[in-house]
Design a protein around this nucleic acid. Structure first.
Length: 211
DNA sequence: TCCCCGATTAACT
DNA sequence: GTTAATCGGGGAG
């Protein structure tokens, strides 16, 4: 099976982000076994982008973003969550694509374990959930996703452009946010149906419903 | 050193 | 719709 090559990632974030929709991300666990998920939601973070961690220059935390394409950038937020990005573009540019949502394909048992036994539909729907399901943390910051390692992309079945929607990025405060979030229309792996709207959660009681 | 707050999530009303 | 949980980064003093 072929991994997505270096050249795939050495392109502008606005090309890579939609092209990752429908691709497979594979994780080989240290304890053995592997998981496979299908990416269905991404966000692009560009150079000179006020919403990007790289905007204020290189630091120890974001150093991986300034490395060569095809490597991971993993950051820690809110004192408890990890989020996984792929570095893209040219070496030193400081641009990346955040993986925000995926559909579980294989290795569900392992992912359920890392996610604390939540419902399957909640395994990978969200950047922190995805990272947790695949047991990805700062230890993966800067690792190569093209050669070697225990985390990589495979071609999968890229989603046709007609079924990819775009809109404002989630959680970005910058005024006049740009539509650099991409997702597969109708996929249950998308973290939010539309900008600022959460999908219905069958596991929890909702106002107006009887339970 | 101090202080604020974040590319989030889960559990509330 | 609202908010607690939880902590490291980075700017200010």
């Amino acid at each position: 099976v072929t991994r997505l090559p270096r050249g795939f990632f050495e392109r502008p974030a606005l090309e890579v982000a939609p092209d990752l929709i429908g691709r497979d991300l594979v994780r080989r666990f240290p304890a053995g076994g592997r998981a496979r998920v299908r990416i269905v939601e991404t966000e692009a973070y560009l150079p000179d982008d006020p919403a990007s961690h790289a905007f204020r220059g290189r630091t120890d935390r974001n150093a991986a973003m300034f490395g060569p394409g095809g490597h991971a950038y993993v950051y820690f937020v809110y004192g408890m969550h990890h989020c996984l990005n792929v570095v893209v573009g040219r070496d030193g540019e400081g641009t990346a694509v955040l993986l925000r949502g995926a559909e579980p394909i294989a290795g569900l048992e392992a992912m359920r374990g890392f996610r604390g036994g939540v419902a399957d539909r909640l395994l990978c729907t969200g950047p922190a959930r995805l990272a947790q399901a695949l047991a990805v943390d700062r230890g993966h910051d800067g690792v190569d996703l093209v050669r070697g390692g225990d985390l990589w992309f495979e071609p999968g079945s890229p989603t046709p452009a007609a079924r990819i929607a775009r809109g404002p990025r989630v959680g970005v405060r910058a005024a006049a946010d740009v539509p650099w979030r991409f997702w597969e229309v109708g996929s249950p792996g998308v973290s939010r149906i539309g900008p600022g709207v959460s999908p219905p959660d069958p596991g929890r009681r909702r106002a107006g419903s009887r339970g």
